[in-house]
Structure formats: C-alpha cells, structure tokens
Amino acid sequence: MPSSTERTRAHRAPQRPGDRVFAGLSTGAGVLILVVLAGVAAFLLTEAWPALVAPAEDIPGGEGVAIYIWPLLFGTLLSAFLALLIAAPLAVAIALFITHYAPRRIAQALGYLIDLLAAVPSIIYGLWGIAVLAPLSVEPSEWLAENLGFIPLFAGPATSTGRTMLVAVIVLAVMILPITSAVVREAFRQTPRLHEEASLALGATRWEMIRMAVLPFGRSSIIGASMLGLGRALGETMAVAIVLSVSGGVTFNLISSGNPKTIAANIALDFPESTGIAVNTLIASGLVLFAVTLLVNMAARAVINRRREFSGAN
C-alpha cells in the first residue's frame, strides 16, 4: 500500500516545508524505536559490566556470574518449555474450535473470551496460582509422586504447600495460551476456502479436511506462535515469583519444595533489597534473559513472516 502512494510522487517534486518536517518527525520516531532497542541492550550491558568483570567471590553465592546465572537459566528454560508443552496443543485446539467448529455467529465472541485471558494482569495470575491452584495441586501431586515417581519429573516428595514448579508451569501455560492461540487462529482463518472445498468435495469429513487443508496451511504459524508463547513464558515474572517456593539448584523434579528459580522471578524477588554488585549481577542475568527472548522472538517472527510471503504468492 505505501508503494502505490509513493509511486505517485516518485518524480521528486519540490518538497514543502510542512511535508519535510512531518516526514522527518515520523521517520525520527521510527528510528527512535531502533535506538531504544539498541539502548536496552547497551544500557543493560553497561550496568551488567561490573558484575561480569568482578572477581568471583564478590558475586552473590561467591562462585562467579556464570555459576550464579546457570541454575536460573535452567529454571527459566524448564518452566517455559513445559508451559509451552501444555499450551501449544491446547492453543491449536482452541483455534480450531473457534475457526472451524463453533457456530459462526458466536465464534467471534468466543474469540474475545479467550483474548480476555490475555488481559488479566500477571500479578493476578500469581495470586490465583498460589491461592487456588496450589492447594488444589497438593492431592494430585501426592498421587503423582506415589504412582509415577519413577519419572524424574514426579520424583517427589510432594510438598504440602503446592508452591511447586508444576503449578508455576500450569499458570504460565494459561498465560501464554491466548497469544499463541490468537496467532494460530488468524492463520487458520486465512486457510483458502478453495483448499477446504477441494478436500470436502473429495468426500473428506471435517477432521480429514482440517488435516488435509487447514493444518498444513497453518503449520509454520503454529511453530511461530509457539515460539512467541515461549518468549512470553521465558520472561514472565510475577506469577512465577509469587507461586514458586524456591531453593535454587538444578532439578527436574516438578512437585517437591526445592524448585529452581527463574531469571525474571529472581530479579523481582531480589532486586528491591539489593545494592552494589548484587544489582549488577541481577542486571547481568536480565541481559541473558533479554538475549534468550530476543533470539526466540526473532526466530518466531521470521517463521511467521516467511509464511506470510508464501501465502501472498499463492
């Protein structure tokens, strides 16, 4: 669309001062965004630097930045991946329900309903997680520890507080569900009617039509949306900070009282009380989080955008 308006003025007509100012302003705003993003990286790096060069024993824990951040990174990745594992299939199913199963008249309203899940502030999910979900999880956790204890994830012993990684993961899954399903929903909605009809005309049932036409068409969007959800889960702070009872350490055990921290939650918990090199260390961990989410998000966007071009060519 911009190109067609541009073409009309391709002859470099003399520019009016008003035009020049306005074009300058809007270009400036765009460039500012790039500057801000670069600034985020630069300022974090500046503030993290003292921790990166400090002697190991000055870092909280006394063993250097890498040793300090590693368990946090582990906790972050573990919680985010597990949350995605729950959320991604649900998101696809919800997107399918709204685009292909729900009666068309109420489909849009149902979409809003799911979007409302995204509107709930994360602090409230945290409170909900610890007040409602955690007590509910105790009994099933004990059952899991008893019956499926041979799986490392459920090794137990189950805590009686319910403030476990399992609950944090479920809360995270609920939180990333709306964004993930919204992106997938958009892709499913754009499935060419032609291809849907082609499979129906061959005598496909609704599910067979979805498998032949809708899912292949939306595949890269599903991947992209999942990564987007992963990015959200990696950076989610408050819900994890409130729910998780932490003791550091690296463990896959989801239902015990000893849970690994996540980077974001650790910052929220420790930052207000920290001074000096501890603050720099926290910022260094934030920098790691920033780098990880940036990579995940860039990859997600690249995947989604590639699909957009591909479908445009069709």
């Binding site: 060419p192 032609l194 009809e197 129906l200 005309a201 005598g203 032949m212």
Partner: peptide, 21 residues
C-alpha cells in the same frame, strides 16, 4: 453428505491442488 461428495466429484473454477502435497 460426505458419502455423496465421495460419489460426485467436483472441479473448481480456480485450480486448487493442495499446496503442501
């Protein structure tokens, strides 16, 4: 209707082979 469509094939206005197949 699924069996009906199975028995009566259809070709559309614009060619629509499944792009991923």
């Amino acid at each position: 209707p699924v069996s009906v469509r199975r028995e009566i094939g259809m070709v559309f206005q614009r060619p629509n082979p499944f792009p991923t197949m």
